[in-house]
Amino acid sequence: MTRRAYDDGRTAAYNYAYLDEQTKRMIRRALLKAVAVPGYQVPFGSREMPLARGWGTGGIQITAAIIGPADTLKVIDQGADDTTNAVSIRRFFERTAAARTTEATAAATIIQTRHRIPEQPLAAGQILVYQVPLPEPLRRLEPREAETRKMHAWAEYGLMHVRLYENIARFGEVTTTYDYPVAVNGRYVMAPSPIPKFDNPKMDMCPALQLFGAGREKRIYAVPPHTRVVSLDFEDHPFRIQSWTEPCGLCGATDTYLDEVVTDDRGGRMFVCSDSHHCETRRAEGHHGPMLAAAASIHLVEKEDAA
């Protein structure tokens, strides 16, 4: 069976995972080049997708080119499975590829993400697919593609270091908090997509394969498993990640990336894990944060009677 009809109100039949086979081959070829030259942005013939440019079409095209019936797909946005765009993309693959989906990080063979790397360390054999809005780490320094391409070709990254250092001179530290540039395999400077810099260390020597898709900008790049990924820094100003003074209000974790939730209009706020599945798993294991009852009162969580 090569075609699978799905009900979109008419009798239209689309290819498995939406993309035609020639397009999948083109993307697959680009992925192999991306893996062979880690961190280098491979141009590809990004297709018009039925979701808006800038809403994950690069990641969707990669997932569509790699997914098969044996896969289990997890889709997250801001670390959460229930964010609207994550729900929408998960539905897309359920409809077009009859994809088996999960929220459990460890159970997924493919994880498509926007803006986070899951807290649970990834394992060999898993593939993390990033949605990338602006693949060019040098773009804010030099808007012209013809110029940035030369800078990569000649590994001319001085400008990037100058910009980071200007930050330090002005603010005492590098003020980039997300999409913090990294050097991959000691050669290409790469945009890790707008993940918080908190997640950057997870990319280094990760046993999972990391694939990056920028649909609107028509670029694919990759970090193979066990590859050096170093956040750019200076000896006297080493790279450091975000930290919070309080634990997750729901599960009590002190080592996760936290989202801030405003609880009232009098300055009340709480911090909760951005990785919703990780937080839920911890609560199921019996961990409790200090704000669990308060969270129930603002309908962030609800009490479920134990079976």
């Binding site: 069976m1 090569t2 290819n15 498995y16 086979e21 999948k24 081959r25 697959r28 992925l31 192999l32 893996v35 062979a36 080119a65 790699i66 997914i67 098969g68 019936p69 044996a70 394969l209 990759a222 193979p224 498993p225 066990h226």
Partner: peptide
């Protein structure tokens, strides 16, 4: 025999081979 799924499985193997 099944171009869509055979090539998908084969690609994943090749991708894994070049990745590791």
């Amino acid at each position: 025999a099944d171009p869509v799924f055979d090539s998908q499985r084969a690609f994943r193997t090749v991708l894994g081979a070049l990745s590791e």
